[in-house]
Structure formats: structure tokens, C-alpha cells
Design a protein around this nucleic acid. Sequence first.
DNA 1: GCGACGATGGGCT
DNA 2: GCCCATCGTCGCA
Length: 192
Amino acid sequence: MARRLTRDFFARATVDVARDLLGQRLVHAVDGQRLSGIISEVEAYVGEADLACHAKAGKTARTAVMYGPPGLAYVYFTYGMHWMLNVITEREGFPAAVLLRGVWPEEGMAVMRARRGRPDRILTDGPAKLTQALGVDKAHNGLDMCAAGAQLYFEEGPGLPEGTTVVAGPRVGLGKTPEPWLSMPWNFRLAR
DNA sequence: GCGACGATGGGCT
DNA sequence: GCCCATCGTCGCA
């Protein structure tokens, strides 16, 4: 049984946590059924000063979880139909998180196919696709992904698969976010 | 293969 | 009333 990532992993600079999450495994285990994938794309959102971060407007009912301790799940709803999964980083009181934007599916493919109803190559290659495939929604908002009994958590993965490299680039979908935040290279992904 | 756009609802001004 | 940390479909090449 692989080791779970512990709270100290997330209690670090958000950009470092983001990069280090690549190659680790995201797991949702329900009733003994493991759904999992190797993390292939992430993004860092760092504090109220980061104008792309939801916490830019301060602490509200929606963003309260971002001010909690590292290791919590921050799940929010957007575009009228999509759930996004983030994990809180740094320290309690400082709002920062890593958005999970893509995984390479491993375990539970049959369930993921049934939930997505789409070809395998686009099962989990987007932030809303992976929450749909893994069955993550508002019920997971605020849950501790580092707690002993957590059903949604991270495991030590294989690291960077042979022949892959890490590519850093601007974050996706930020719309009218002003510079320099619009172009900060805080999106990290695995590429061949 | 690729660009345009509609769906759809909560959060904030 | 406007803005989304998006996805799927459609039209056209």
C-alpha cells in the first residue's frame, strides 16, 4: 500500500507543492472501490494579492475553506455545471491552493467511463472532467484530505514517468485578470 | 483539426 | 446584471 501524502507536504510554498504534485496519485476510494490517476496538470493560486485567486476579494462564505489549514479540499462550482477540486496549501489563515487540472486514469476505469460516457482519451484531462470521473462534488468541500479516514486523498506516485518533462506556463482561463497575474507561469504539466 | 458559441447557476458588485 | 480557474457540439476545412 502506497504512502499517503501528509500535511507537511502541503504546508509549503504553493508553487513548490504544485510542481511536486505532478507524478503523485490522486485517489477517491468509496466502499473499497478505488478510483485513481497520476496527476498530470496543476495550477497554483497564491493569496489575496494574486488577482486570479478566488481569495482576491477576501474571506467570504465561498472562500472560507481557502483560509483553513493545508491539506483541506476546496471544491467549488462554476459555469453553472462544473465542480473544481483544489487542495489547500501553506498555512492556516493564508488563502492559497493548488487546482487539480488533469490526471492520467489508472484504477476504476469502468466507473470513470460510465460517469463520463466519453472516449478514454478525454476521461480526466480537464479540471471538471476529473471531478466528474472521480465523483467529486460539493460534498467534499472542506474535507481533510490528510485525515486518517479520508476517502479522497493523495498517495505517493511513481514520480515523473520515464521520458516525461515538466512544462511551466501561464494559468488557463483567467479571462480579464490583470498582469502580472495573467502571465505568471504557475501552471505545471507533464509532457512527453 | 480547429474556432466559435451556448449551456447554466452561484457569487459578487 | 455581469462574470466566470469549463465542456461539448457544431460548422467548416
